[in-house]
């Protein structure tokens, strides 16, 4: 079987692979047995989660779990997203826009219809997250789709060239989250312990900031490298390379 880049990835069953397969099958068997021995009905944390819902500031238990009950977990996950972008940016530089073919007129007119709708849906998902399935992660994924479409049609140079704004928006979600997490301690609470009266508003504030950061993070990963900043492009043009 030939991999697309020409490296032969042979699938023969060598003795080593047989050992790996036996090991994996044993592990799968043990895991499967453990799954089968689980009780048929278990409320898990659902009872507690629903009982505390009136204190969480939102009406959707999943959003309450993401941003209130397990807020610490989500805070660290947003930090992981930022770390991934920092990692990718330190490894690679984005392809210059000239590397792509000009977008077809069909794609461009399709985008004119669909992009405003997608931005609207992202905001709707963020808003509805407080009482129905939705939230910053879902809205962020849709908004990232907007940026990916702009990338594919070669229309997004303006977004990736404003590096100060780009970096500001990438860290916005994490900064707001940390500011709120620490800020509630001023009122006498513990870290991430939102005051009950303002919990809904604080969650919406964190989610709005996280939405922007999640969308930009996913799109930055799709672009796959640090875009040329103004300094880089000016030094590049000094070397005879056109920045645009």
């Amino acid at each position: 079987m030939n991999a697309p880049d020409g490296i032969t990835d042979d699938t023969r069953l060598t003795p080593l692979r047989l050992i790996i397969m036996l090991f994996v099958l044993t592990l799968a068997g043990a895991l499967g047995w453990a799954v089968c021995s689980l009780p048929e009905y278990s409320s898990g944390l659902a009872v507690t989660a629903l009982a505390e819902l009136s204190n969480s500031g939102v009406l959707n238990p999943v959003t309450a779990a993401v941003l209130n009950y397990r807020g610490y977990d989500t805070l660290l996950e947003i930090a992981v997203l930022l770390l991934a972008v920092i990692g990718v940016w330190s490894l690679a530089q984005a392809e210059p826009p000239a590397a792509f073919e000009p977008a077809s007129p069909v794609l461009l007119s399709f985008m004119r219809i669909v992009l405003p709708l997608m931005i609207l849906i992202a905001g709707y998902l963020l808003w509805i997250g407080s009482f129905a399935p939705g939230g910053a992660f879902q809205g962020g994924a849709v908004l990232a789709g907007v940026l990916v479409l702009l990338r594919l049609s070669n229309q997004d140079f303006a977004i990736w060239s404003h590096e100060v704004w780009l970096r500001f928006c990438l860290v916005l979600g994490l900064s707001v989250f940390i500011a709120v997490a620490v800020g509630v301690m001023a009122g006498g609470g513990k870290l991430l312990e939102y005051p009950r009266a303002h919990a809904g508003m604080l969650i919406l504030l964190i989610e709005s900031a996280a939405l922007i950061s999640i969308a930009l993070t996913l799109a930055a990963l799709f672009v796959g490298g640090r875009a040329l900043s103004d300094e880089d492009s000016s030094s590049a043009s000094e070397n005879g390379v056109q920045p645009k």
């Binding site: 409320s43 898990g44 944390l45 659902a46 989660a49 629903l50 238990p61 999943v62 309450a64 779990a65 993401v66 009950y69 397990r70």
Partner: peptide, 8 residues
Amino acid sequence: VADPVPQA
């Protein structure tokens, strides 16, 4: 209802 914590 399904447990919201694993979903989150």
